[in-house]
């Protein structure tokens, strides 16, 4: 097990290097450069040129990559080209906690709602309630998050005034847990909807499968109560495919947060990503790509390890 984990960790290094090379190339392929945003007609060509030269943007792409990689190896993600004088680290670290908070709370909500519903549907398959949940989960999978988000802001925030229209906290107010939660709840629920819906489907299918197994029949024959049969004997095995799903959900969350953060004005890395991309702030884009890649790789690693813990049949 330990050797497996070490091997998996070491394997992530070539993966991350590969990601960095490919994305560095793609980012540079996009037409435009940071000075394209110097829209003032009176900015002179010399000033523009001096800027490009100073930041090494006139170098060939492989040279730029090697320089960038050299910085990374020294543990430095570089300086932003747009917010001059700020390091990429500090810009990402200022935002990352917000995104992680949103993702984690969103995942907790998704699991807390989806798994009981899935299990319940599996124990009462093909009933009216099951069909109702199924319909809703299909709707949840099919509806884009940002659309639900816009609806939520329009009606729940602007129309009824139940929730704030965006941000992480009320401006000019002292810190309060309640206020933070109040701001968090809408984006977290909305970000979780599609995953909530697909988790419901997965846990239902997988539980249905498990509940049909011989050992469940044996457990019932021994006279265990329904609850014990389902949650003790069934759930542990039923959750294995769900764990795989969790690993796959992480990129989903990162991608989803880019959009949800924009809708809810949530100051996380997703919003930073959008700005960096439109401004062609190359070091910042690369920093964000690497952080997201790392999150995804670590997420998959965790899923694999959990898999091993939950499924004793798997050996390494």
């Amino acid at each position: 097990m330990i050797t497996y984990i070490i091997r998996r960790c070491l394997l992530t290094i070539p993966v991350l290097v590969g990601i960095s090379m490919v994305s560095f190339g793609i980012v540079q392929l996009a037409p435009g450069e940071p000075t394209a945003l110097f829209i003032d007609p009176e900015i002179s060509a010399e000033d523009r040129e001096a800027y490009l030269e100073h930041y090494g943007l006139n170098d060939p792409i492989p040279v730029q990559y090697v320089k960038w990689m050299g910085q990374i190896l020294q543990g430095n993600l570089g300086y932003s080209l747009i917010n001059q004088g700020m390091t990429v680290q500090e810009m990402i670290l200022a935002r990352l906690p917000n995104t992680l908070l949103l993702m984690i709370v969103s995942a907790i909500i998704a699991f807390a709602i989806a798994i009981p519903i899935g299990v319940y549907s599996a124990t009462k398959p093909y009933t009216l309630k099951d069909y109702t949940f199924t319909t809703f989960s299909f709707l949840g999978v099919a509806t884009p998050n940002f659309w639900i988000g816009l609806l939520a802001v329009t009606f729940l925030s602007v129309q009824f005034g139940w929730f704030p229209t965006g941000g992480v906290a009320t401006l000019n107010e002292p810190f309060s847990i309640f206020d933070r939660l109040h701001h968090l709840i809408l984006p977290a629920v909305v970000l979780g909807t599609s995953d909530m819906a697909s988790l419901t489907r997965y846990s239902r299918t997988s539980m249905l499968d498990v509940l049909d197994q011989d050992y469940i029949r044996t457990a019932r024959a021994k006279g265990f109560k329904q609850g014990k049969v389902v949650y003790k004997h069934g759930l542990r095995n039923g959750l294995i495919p769900v764990i795989t799903m969790t690993g796959l959900m992480l990129p989903n969350f990162i991608g989803g947060s880019v959009i949800i953060e924009k809708v809810f004005n949530w100051p996380g890395i997703g919003l930073l990503f959008i700005d960096a991309t439109f401004q062609r702030d190359y070091p910042l884009i690369m920093g964000l790509v690497m952080v997201s890649a790392l999150l995804v790789v670590v997420g998959n690693l965790l899923a694999d390890i959990l898999y091993a813990i939950f499924d004793p049949r798997i050996e390494y």
């Binding site: 802001v153 602007v158 005034g161 229209t165 965006g166 401006l171 000019n172 924009k262 004005n265």
Partner: peptide, 22 residues
């Protein structure tokens, strides 16, 4: 006393925030 420049990256959210009195 103070001026707070709030960053709201979406044009429609900006208008929604003004409408909501924020």
């Amino acid at each position: 006393d103070s001026i707070t420049y709030k960053i709201v990256p979406d044009k429609n959210s900006l208008l929604a925030q003004f409408t909501a009195g924020d």
